[in-house]
Design a binder for these strands. Sequence first.
DNA 1: TCAATATTTAGAATTATTATATTTTTGAAT
DNA 2: ATTCAAAAATATAATAATTCTAAATATTGA
Lengths: 139, 139
Amino acid sequence: MENKTGYLREYLHKHGVKPSSIRMVVLDYLLSRRTHPTAEEVYGALCQELPAVSRASIYNTLELFCQKGIVKTVPTDGRETRYDADRSFHGHFECEVCGKIYDFRIDSDNVDLRELEGFVVREKDIYCRGLCPQCHSDQ
Amino acid sequence: MENKTGYLREYLHKHGVKPSSIRMVVLDYLLSRRTHPTAEEVYGALCQELPAVSRASIYNTLELFCQKGIVKTVPTDGRETRYDADRSFHGHFECEVCGKIYDFRIDSDNVDLRELEGFVVREKDIYCRGLCPQCHSDQ
DNA sequence: TCAATATTTAGAATTATTATATTTTTGAAT
DNA sequence: ATTCAAAAATATAATAATTCTAAATATTGA
């Protein structure tokens, strides 16, 4: 898996982040599963690979990744911050029952922001909430 | 102001909420200022009118209003929940500097949710983040 | 009126996150 | 390789937002 390590190292480097073992593992986790995890989920998953890791390091790493544009936060109603390594424009759907967040494709041109003249728009998101097909059929 | 009281009472009744003095005052606050306040902001503002009010009552009232469809929460990156009494479809812009949340009009038809077939969509929102004109010109 | 129910309160508990101070790791210069 | 400084990671304390709990108060209906 020398390739993967090299890829992650390069990915961090391109975004101006010095590699460290934690950063590599966190990045690998975020890139390989596009599940919009919370900090706690990242921490829980990584405890197996890095038994000595601390929550603070996870928070620091995620905050750094945000600043450097490696991940972005997903605006949601919940109070846990969720992180997304897919920085392309897409929508998010949050299921009210299972809490899962789904991505969906949407044409960026559809979103007409003419009324935001004078504003500097750095991020935009489409957010929907309701029932996912699974939870809908379970009722 | 008998009119206002009657209006608020009726508004609550229509949404299946029994009126109480706290509920009336909270509703009045939410309807008269469309500022997407946090629970703490509502609490702070109401302490003057209702000196004995508790935070728990504010939280309870806002939660009840959400369930009954009187307000909805605004999905944001921040970790304080923000409430919006304007339930019509519109976009939100959050300023990264001053934290203020602005509404903007956007045509609902523009948002193409065809890819969410099989999902029950109960809420949708457009979220943007960046610099508001004020904070942009201050830099 | 009086019991049953709903609402509100104060404060404790919980959860998510951030801050702090110490230790460990890393990488350059010797 | 060894030393040293800077950066990163750690454990833990502190903070912030919210929720829970139990008691007090208010409201409603027989």
